[in-house]
Nucleic acid binder design. Sequence first.
DNA 1: TACATTATGTGTACAAAGTACACATTGCCT
DNA 2: AGGCAATGTGTACTTTGTACACATAATGTA
Lengths: 234, 234
Amino acid sequence: MGKSSNLKTAALEKSSHLEYFKIAVSVDCVIFGYEDKELKVLLIKSDLKEFAGMYSLLGDLVRPDEDLDEASYRILKERTDLDDVFLQQVHTFGTINRHPSGRVVSTAYYSLVNINNHKLKINHNDLRWHSVKSVYKLAFDHKEILTTCLAHLRGQIEEHPVVHNLLNEKFSLRELQEVYEAVLNTPLDRRNFRKKITLKNWLVDLNEMEDNVSHRPGKLYRFKPKVIKNNKLA
Amino acid sequence: MGKSSNLKTAALEKSSHLEYFKIAVSVDCVIFGYEDKELKVLLIKSDLKEFAGMYSLLGDLVRPDEDLDEASYRILKERTDLDDVFLQQVHTFGTINRHPSGRVVSTAYYSLVNINNHKLKINHNDLRWHSVKSVYKLAFDHKEILTTCLAHLRGQIEEHPVVHNLLNEKFSLRELQEVYEAVLNTPLDRRNFRKKITLKNWLVDLNEMEDNVSHRPGKLYRFKPKVIKNNKLA
DNA sequence: TACATTATGTGTACAAAGTACACATTGCCT
DNA sequence: AGGCAATGTGTACTTTGTACACATAATGTA
């Protein structure tokens, strides 16, 4: 047993420091989007022969000269070409055998992006959006990571205005409710939903009406800038 | 930019795999205890000359042949000699310069232990309990880690019966309330506290009375085994 | 043994938030 | 003009949170 908790000392107990650098550090991003009243997730076909034909999350090894958070931004930017996107760390997965090529400890981040506001970079490996509901199996432990991040997202939308990342700037209350229903995978009562949102005081009434709908148009709203700003900090 | 998110491919883009194994992986444990109506945290003097005289959390590098979770259990066990202890991952800290000796990404866990139920292993480096309130500065980014874990704990005790880990098996409602007050660092109304706890339905009335108190003794309770078991799974 | 001390045990009124539920209105389409 | 499809709105009830006071029980001490 170590005589101290200290990194330096602990490393010296081993015959060689090298032993401790046999673990790779990676980041996996669960990038959620919203389209056609469904919650989507961005997946790519795995390169590994062990997972031939299977999809995986977007991830990469962390470079020695970048922060963990920076690494997740890099991955997101490489794929979606979006800056200034919502991204939050969720959990770190570190079982011994989670990666077939070697020991890899991976920190999962979740992100929310507006699918309509950007194009995916042209990419190999069939990079595309999948309905979250339709995802049954993924390479590595990525299904578990997805499940963990989805649960985290569901907890967050109750208290935090994160869904603004999934919507256009202007939206009707129906559109907002549909996002909540898609994320929570449950129908919501319209009157109660509106009451709840009103109480939170997140929105500004734009005094504009929906357009291009084949029924009575609803009023348009947007999130208050202050609300969005505070959320970014948290 | 990488042409794929895949670990194998990304690694191959670099001239050498070795570049990716320059990051060490460690675990830091925020071990909370409770004594004298105060929340405590277990700290040890840092070995590093850069942090001479400063205290740090208990941590160690993760060995290539142990899971991340196992590493945190190992550290806890080495120091407190307790098995079967509450331990939960909170957050991973990965800025480039957080460790003076090199690049170390560290996953923080928090733990709750009953200080009276065990002795600390004899140790160097002044391993001992500190009142959480009195901790102003720590080595590395450990103050930030402590703050993050404390916030996490405060969130948890509202919904989950985790405080059972801090108490003896039998306790009075006053003792339970004092734990909550210590963790939340705020006084609570006695009647409202009892109502809230009653609603949660976590406790069994043992039909026994306190002993060795110099005033009217209170009734003793314990947590229902089912409640504790479910909490361990979560 | 009585009395001061200290903590236990208990309930009500009010406020805030969540939930179940129905009908008139508006604009589009044919 | 009438049908369609959605918007917009309020009330009664339940649940949860909060503020607040007094009688009771055991101990310690004069």
